[in-house]
Design a protein around this nucleic acid. Sequence first.
RNA 1: CGGGGUUUAGCGCAGUUGGUAGCGCGCUACGUUCGGGACGUAGAGGUCGGGCGUUCGAGUCGCCUAACCCCGACCA
Length: 492
Amino acid sequence: MAELKNFTKRSDNYSQWYNELVIKADLAEQSAVRGCMVIKPYGYAIWEKMQHELDRMFKETGHQNAYFPLLIPKSFLSREADHVEGFAKECAVVTHHRLKNDPNGGGVIVDPEARLEEELIIRPTSETIIWNTYKNWINSYRDLPILVNQWANVMRWEMRTRMFLRTAEFLWQEGHTAHATREEAEEEAIRMLNVYADFAENFMAVPVVKGVKSPNERFAGALDTYTIEAMMQDGKALQSGTSHFLGQNFAKAFDVTFMNKNNKPEYVWATSWGVSTRLMGALIMTHSDDNGLVLPPRLAPIQVVIVPIFKNEDDLAAISEKIEPVIKELRNKGISVKFDSADNKRPGFKFADYEVKGVPVRLALGKRDLENGTVELMRRDTLTKETLPIDGIAEHIEKELEDIQNSLFNRALQYRKDHTISVDTYEEFKEKIEDGGFIMAHWDGTPETEEKIKEETKATIRCIPFDGDKTPGVCMVTGKPSAQRVVFARAY
RNA sequence: CGGGGUUUAGCGCAGUUGGUAGCGCGCUACGUUCGGGACGUAGAGGUCGGGCGUUCGAGUCGCCUAACCCCGACCA
């Protein structure tokens, strides 16, 4: 396999660089099933860290976990017109429930006798089966709100797949809430968008733009889709999480009503929101360099790796004795430490290996250090090494991890700032979009104009940002009035 | 579904006018090494994606087929 170093992030080989990084860092590999991936233990450990933090945040905002079926009757999907139109083209369908031996020779065939009366869809998302269930759960305003989240896998038969960013099967969480009033549901959708932004920025160290999607980009069946958009190192945008205000669409489709305080039936107001293993892709493409993965300390399965440098068992014993108290101290601080004393790999190999895996801090300790009472510390984000006294190293590492977390965020934020520009004419837009990055421009608010821009430049409106310049202007294409600038970019 | 490409050892690849299957990495054993992906020696490992054909003979030529990758359209 070619070395990662042969590829550079912002080149045309970005895809190849990304794929190779995923494989070399031992995160995932292509599975035998089309468009699916195997998430390997190290990659899954990162996902588990993400899950853990997100789940805590969901519970802090009053949500509970539940689980709904994988298979959805076909008729459910067609109950909401926009929803079925959005997903129909990418559904895997279960048609039979039995195999039998092939009468014409070896192997098995689908038993034609075992055809299902109604086909089942492998969930591409769970709104329909959940709202079919909520119908039974909701009678009175006293049953509301329902604040439920599910951790699950879903399947979308995408034309083209890419590891973590768009696999046929992916892991995610989907929150589905039911409320008595429009205001409450809208608040919920915004609240969860803020949870996602908080998680992206403070744990993943990925700065995001919060905003609302244009009608073209809206979730199938939603009245409003809120989004967090991140910028990758090649200047393309990645939709990293979405929160939808569903209005009463699903309540009407599944006839979910409640008796309000005036004893009048009303349709329930809904939201749904989700983030997926795509976040792993965002994490990789935001921070990594040509030496491999770079992980923010708060999500790194191993925060500190210690590599002893020794020639024989006596050397190792002396090093272990010196470092044991440090390991204890670090663990007491809640820092995850790996002491890699394996004698079947050389130190240089270990250095390179943990670098590819993105371990934030590495300590190296050999005979020379024992004599001097020192240890060598390397930061993965800057690749800088310094030799420090072993006394007080645990406190130093604690601060260093915090610093890495912050500087990763700041670096990514600076990158985004450097690649975000404002343009006022369509000519300039067409020219600048080739450089990648975000372009802040005025738009007349019509789907037709957005469609034209997309066809001509491959750029889409990533969102109408909440924060930012609210100065009105005129659409760069049609010259019609525009309330504010919106974010344009090419996207994954 | 359009356009391009690939398929030969676990991985990455070479294979000339058709003539008994190769290289690098990795793997196994032993030895020397061990402060940035060590080196030497000796090994193991492939019905060349599948099928049909041409031929005395096919990895190589022809036809069919499948899978995968990349670029589009679709999408979290």
